[in-house]
Design a protein around this nucleic acid. Sequence first.
RNA 1: GCGCCCGUAGCUCAGUUGGAUAGAGCAUCAGAUUCCUAAUCUGGGGGCCACAGGUUCGAAUCCUGUCGGGCGCACCA
Length: 590
Amino acid sequence: MSDTENITQTVHAGFAAKLDAVLTALEHDGVLPADAPRKGVTVEPPRDPSHGDLATNAAMVLAKQAKTNPRELAGKIIEKLSADDAVESAEIAGPGFINLRLGASVWLGELHAIAAMGEAYGQSTMGAGRRVNVEYVSANPTGPMHMGHCRGAVVGDALSSLLEFSGHKVTREYYINDAGGQVDVLARSAHLRYLEALGEDIGDIPEGLYPGDYLKPVGAALAKLHGDAFKDASEEDWLDTFRTDAVAQMMELIKSDLHLLGISHDLFSSEAVLHAKGKPAKAEAWLREHDLVYDGVLEAPKGKAPPEDWEPVELPLFRSTKFGDDQDRPIKKSDGKWTYFGADLAYHMQKAENADELIDIWGADHAGTVKRIKAAVSALSEGQGKAIPFDVKLVQMVQLMRDGEPVKMSKRSGNFITIADMVEELGADVAQNIIRFTMLTRKPEAQMEFDFAKVVEASKDNPVFYVQYAHARIQSTLRKAAAEGFAPSDAHLDQLGEEELELVKQAAQFPRLVEAAASAREPHRIAFYLYDLAGAFHAYWNLGNDRPDKRFIVAQSPDLTGARLFLALQLGQTIANGLRILGVEAVQEM
RNA sequence: GCGCCCGUAGCUCAGUUGGAUAGAGCAUCAGAUUCCUAAUCUGGGGGCCACAGGUUCGAAUCCUGUCGGGCGCACCA
């Protein structure tokens, strides 16, 4: 096992270590001053492959410290680097880049590594088992999931997988906002549907209640459960029960919607339970102890005209300005109840109990509250004397388009496109793949358009099929080869030529790319990488159109065929591993 | 008025945490199918990286400002 690890390390991270050793040697030689800072020195594949396999900027970064010019220093570095067997050539380019070309054996070794590691290829220990809590979706439990929730759900889920793949211990958490006014509205809306189920004519749904038909089954279920016990009862008699029951059913609905996208959380945390356990009060006590909460008066809202009913009131305020917020924030309302922020603050303290690191995935419409919650976690870190890294990833809005026109969605009118609708429209078997890949082929912090026309009939132009097709082609080739009596074999890998090695080199980027994507918390990089890798594969495949000697199966050359099939197998494995992170199926045929 | 995000080809978007001549798909033009899946491939045209300064060996990337688009600016959730 450690052998294969060393092999994968060798190609990228491994060369960084080698360069480091060379620089240290140059320090001993007096070329570089002792302990010269090496910040900014990188070893990475150059953008333009014709420059070589790896490039380093070391000479340019360190020339000043060495009191020489970059190209001269580069010469000295190369002198030492060339001693390495794996280095086929090393040359100075441009202003002082050092371009390295590695021997074929290095890349063939990588192919062995993929084979040896299989599904684990690309995994890393970067996370060192750190416990990361990723909270995502957390949609209000008042209705089904709609397309507006989709992006955060997919990004959060893929990010979780990515972090797991990179050696973190991830908890996928959903915060159920079941304590605010909106769930009372839900309970009242459900009561109306309950009356309807009992045969009453309820007419139009009154303004301020949720009008959606999805509450009809809830009303029916409540009627079945309670009979007419609450038919003429006053609201205080049924509100608690109906709220609990309705929320429970909404959560079932939401879970099944999420399941359609292949998403399931490890932990559902209830705001109501948080309150029942007295967590906000404990948080307040702790914060007051640390002089982070005080009783004070809020300033009137600036900018636009202040609300007419605004008046100064003394409230318990959290000192979020101390941690970069624009204003201190109330944790309780004037009626003594907790604000949403007060509860959320306690909730983050709760999450931090069982995690080393917190990540929240929020919609852009919550951007305004990022500073205060970051302040809260900073305060917690400071108070506890241990840093709790905390990141809020804002996922920008998705503009749904149909026939070139924006689709308007309004929850209040009940006019919105649900995930379930979308899945039905796309087809249950492919919807998860299409939606996930589409959402992941752009960076989350930029607004995106989701065009139904393009995505629905996308069987041609959708990138997800392009990548899946590459995988399917590989599988079909392996099947066909098996039928003709050929099997993948690493016995004659030396027969692989330049074009094949190029494919290996691209696949070999995968571990490095996974780490980069994980540390940047950017799962979309995986999607783009897979697209490129698939493109390289398709291009290679088509060489076989004009040149039968470039096909995977060359009947008269069994050794070469075995080697090519081995290559195909490992490419397929790499694509499958990437798709697994994204939660997209690696299909066997199309 | 303030805060956050964004501005890259006609359109949709990448750009490896600051690297070399700025990339892909769609669209457009010209080609490839007696061949393991053409859901594929090859090539052409198309750019003031919104604009102006700054930082340095080097900027689409970092800083400041301007313009443009989005989201938000209760004791709501």
